[in-house]
Amino acid sequence: MTPQDDRLQTVEPREVGMLLSVGPPEDRLRHWLAAEGADRGEEAETALASLFAMLPIPQPSAAFADRVLINLGLETRPAAYPWWSRAMIAVCLLLAGLTTAYAFPLIFSLAQFVAPGEVAGMVVQTFVGLASQTDELLAIWRVFARVVNTALLVATSPQVVVALLSLTVFSVFTLRGLNQLLSPSRSSEYVQAL
């Protein structure tokens, strides 16, 4: 639907006279300024109207009317994604949730092959070997060793560490997907509370 109401956009100085519609812009300007300077009020108004007809009229954004209706609650926000993609994402999330619930035993069994303590030990040995070459590295190592010892106290078993890491990664991706799914494609601009 195109904007209506040509009447408002057509300048019709109803109380003045005929609108000047011809003549290059400079002539219209000169005519107006001359009439204004000579205090010929009606003529000046007519001439000025023809100048104002040259001014650009801003076009509202394409969704202006939509936003008004959305702000009034007369229209629901259109979905960010088509229905079929939303259905697919919902199914995937459901499968992911179910899989996670039944995958915990699998995760714990896999964790037996990964011993964070052994990995940490290898890192320590490497660093000690390097640190023994310089005093500065040794100082840094002391701080690092304190931090790692504290962390290792918390993660007492490999199963717990792996499970925590897995859940963290999963939740990040899930929440991100849910956020994109639920976010509208347009947001309303400022509207002062009535």
């Binding site: 209506q4 408002l8 076009q59």
Partner: peptide, 9 residues
């Protein structure tokens, strides 16, 4: 909506 479209500009 038609009113808005008519007078928005």
């Amino acid at each position: 909506r038609l009113l808005v479209e008519r007078f928005q500009r």
